[in-house]
Design a protein around this nucleic acid. Structure first.
Lengths: 160, 160
DNA sequence: GAAATAATATAGCTAAGGCTATTTTTCAAT
DNA sequence: ATTGAAAAATAGCCTTAGCTATATTATTTC
């Protein structure tokens, strides 16, 4: 009659992978916590590359969020070592920030391209990729890349 | 020098779809808010089908979360009309709850099968599907289904 | 039917991510 | 150089989702 009988009970009645599911949920909760950080870092990198500066107002406007919300989040990014900030001056990515941004950008690109490649419209692909990218493991990304490569080569084959 | 010049500025310098991106982020934030509700309803449906009852302890154990956390969430599910609960008795899905559960189950199934079909291992597919399912729009799900159907039929063709 | 056990409920804490309103600082323009 | 506008910082609020500890209610067992 311990806690563990619940698991046993489940196994007998057909819910085979109870502990595995626990892990999925844990993993997903973890991902959710890092999603925002990734969104910010990715966006900041975009703004820096594109306009040379990433101001709070720009970030806020892009995310559709109020400026103090951004200010608070930037403190978190600083404490986690992804950005540097000088009061009333700009925001800069640290090495770690740049690495994370690159990773996110690549991942985002793969997911979005992949969705398009299976026939999802560009607009929907953008929206869905925004949410899905954070949950795509390296293994899944590899599968997406394989698929993209295969599709590209078969398109070439069809032409030639 | 209004707020809108930022958008204009971005357009000129290459970040073409600033307002579209705002919408993506908004959409994603919205999804994140409903994810937990969906996870709970889906899990409750599973437990009910499988064991005939969905107790707080079971849900807590499955989600890897403490029982009071579940209790609090169940209140939200009640107020949103997805479940009914009698003190110290079981939890039951309302019609709305059952509809949502069916929708989630189907969506989950499609995403997980799809990942497997492009070569992702079952374990990774389960984990990634758990996170990705909530961000797959109807259009993307349709694309997944089309792909699954095509893959299935080509497998049959290869055999015949 | 009383005691022990298990499940649920409740109280009260934390952290995160939103918000508005306000103050401080910087920058630009006269 | 001063002023006015824009940006950033700060204060203080809310909600959600997590936690622990504890009280309450059912259920089971003797």
């Amino acid at each position: 009659m311990t806690q563990h009988d619940n698991v046993g009970h489940d196994v007998e009645t057909g819910l085979i992978d109870a502990d595995a599911q626990v892990e999925s949920f844990r993993q997903t909760r973890n991902n959710r916590r890092t999603e925002l950080v990734e969104d910010y870092v990715e966006l900041i990198a975009d703004l820096l590359v594109d306009g040379g500066e990433a101001r709070q107002v720009d970030i806020a406007q892009r995310l559709g969020v109020a400026q103090p919300t951004v200010a608070k989040m930037l403190k978190r990014l600083i404490s986690e070592g992804y950005i540097q900030q000088r009061r009333y001056r700009g925001i800069f990515l640290t090495d770690a920030g740049r690495r994370l941004a690159d990773l996110c950008r690549e991942r985002h690109q793969i997911v979005e391209s992949f969705l398009c490649s299976i026939g999802v419209s560009p607009e929907t692909a953008r929206i869905d990729a925004e949410g899905m990218e954070h949950h795509a493991s390296p293994e899944t990304l590899e599968a997406f890349k394989r698929f993209l490569a295969r599709t590209a080569s078969s398109r070439i084959a069809a032409q030639g």
